[in-house]
Design a protein around this nucleic acid. Sequence first.
DNA 1: GCGACAG
DNA 2: ATCTTGTCGC
Length: 169
Amino acid sequence: MVLRFPSLELVEKVYHTGPVEVPYVPGFLSFREAPNVLKAYEKLQQKPDIIMVDGHGIAHPRRMGIAAHIGVMLDMPSFGVAKQKLTGSFTEPDIAKGSINPLTDKSGDLLGEVIRSKDKVLPLFVSPGHRCDQATATRLTLACLRGYKLPEPTRLADHWAEEFKKELR
DNA sequence: GCGACAG
DNA sequence: ATCTTGTCGC
């Protein structure tokens, strides 16, 4: 789905269903999800300027999480917002909304940022995908918060996906 | 060998 | 991810 920024008003939302043959294997999520995500993207009449993906960007063992993968495939700016860590280490950010700590690899290189998007809830893992820097990924994520743990793009996408699955039954 | 492990 | 029961805090 596409939202206008910074108003976050709905611009367009499309649906797509397709077979999923590849099993889920940590580190290889894009091979399972990307194919159908790309098909859904093709249905959009209004293409976005940047893409927020539910998953990691470069905060990945080989710096190629699904957000980076999708960005490269489409050659579009992208970044990832994940709910769980895949790799790297970090110290728990302060429980207050807006607190941020770095997510780093064994060498100390920055992989992404751990952000408390809401008071006292588990933090989010934000990392650049393709043609996007950390500052932009973090800034946009924070600007998309509306009182919930998840930023509006992924939160609403999850919501409408559930509605769509109900219609199928 | 043991622990970790996006969605 | 999906399913599902019970608990906790505002």
